[in-house]
């Protein structure tokens, strides 16, 4: 089948998902979306993406399966340990001056970053005064994040990352291993609100002191990146912090002027006052 036809099918499917279910992937970086949808088509056994569209339009139970292809990213706890070290050493000392804190993990996927930040805040004595918001558009990812259960074979890497981040405790203090799985302690999510929120279509919902949104912007096209960064700026308290992925940057953003570099090597920015 000509590629132009596949591209057209993808455009139509994304339009259908938006109009039928209000999931808006129309401004996601298209090359990656195409890989995922072609993979979904092949693995779910459809001859064409149009056939897949027909199914999802008429059968809502198909939606979660498709969302899994379109949204779920693979992450690790304490991915990029130097980022967490920078938060620990440079950002948290500032946050300690506040009596209460709000932290937003935007695009929390299956929760690895949520638990990483919860552990970091516990280690630094800030957990009890912090409210964490973990948001994603995929309900199944949110449920997995809330469950906090990970395959045991991933724990070695998580532990190594945690140590490199300057961890003051042992990761094993925070989970129970059973049947090949690590179940993270519920005390880590006592102060976490898991909630459905879209950076594409939803608005500001609280005033944050720290927003961590890593490796989400790379999936957006430029206009959508600008929308999301604008949303972050408007959600941040005075001198609040924004952490992006190691290969993401505000350099080309329409809102670059709204932030100053705080830890440039780790893509940690601080809201600049107008």
């Amino acid at each position: 089948m000509p590629e132009a036809v596949v591209d057209l099918e993808i455009q139509l499917l994304l339009e259908a998902l938006y109009q039928r279910y209000h999931y808006d992937f129309r401004h996601y970086a298209r090359a990656s979306i195409k890989r995922r949808l072609v993979q979904a088509r092949d693995q779910l056994g459809y001859a064409t993406i149009s056939a897949m569209q027909d199914r999802v339009l008429h059968d809502a139970s198909m939606l979660p399966r498709l969302l899994d292809y379109l949204t779920v990213q693979v992450s690790e706890m304490f991915r990029d340990p130097t980022y967490f070290r920078a938060l620990r050493e440079k950002v948290l000392p500032h946050l300690k001056t506040y009596p209460s804190l709000k932290v937003w993990i935007a695009g929390s996927s299956t929760g690895e970053e949520v638990y990483s930040l919860a552990i970091l805040f516990k280690e630094e004595g800030l957990y009890d005064r912090t409210l964490f918001y973990a948001t994603d558009i995929n309900p199944e990812a949110l449920a997995a994040a809330e469950a906090g259960v990970y395959a045991l074979d991933r724990i070695r890497k998580f532990t190594e990352n945690h140590q490199k981040s300057g961890g003051r405790s042992s990761l094993s203090d925070y989970y129970t291993a059973a049947y090949g799985r690590a179940v993270f302690d519920k005390s880590l999510r006592e102060r976490v609100v898991f909630s459905d929120h879209s950076l594409v279509t939803d608005a500001v919902f609280a005033e944050m002191h720290l927003i961590s949104c890593r490796n989400v912007m790379i999936y957006f096209d430029r206009p959508l990146q600008d929308r999301a960064i604008g949303l972050f700026r408007d959600s941040l308290a005075r001198k609040g912090f924004l952490g992006l992925g190691s290969k993401e940057s505000l350099r080309f953003s329409a809102h670059a002027g709204g932030f100053s570099d705080f830890v440039p090597g780790e893509k940690i920015y601080q809201r600049r006052e107008p």
Binding site: A29, A31, R35, S75, N215, I218
Partner: peptide, 14 residues
């Protein structure tokens, strides 16, 4: 990855 408009994009897909 290369986008249709000739710009580059990165991903952390599996």
């Amino acid at each position: 990855l290369v986008e249709a408009d000739g710009s580059l994009s990165l991903s952390t897909d599996e």
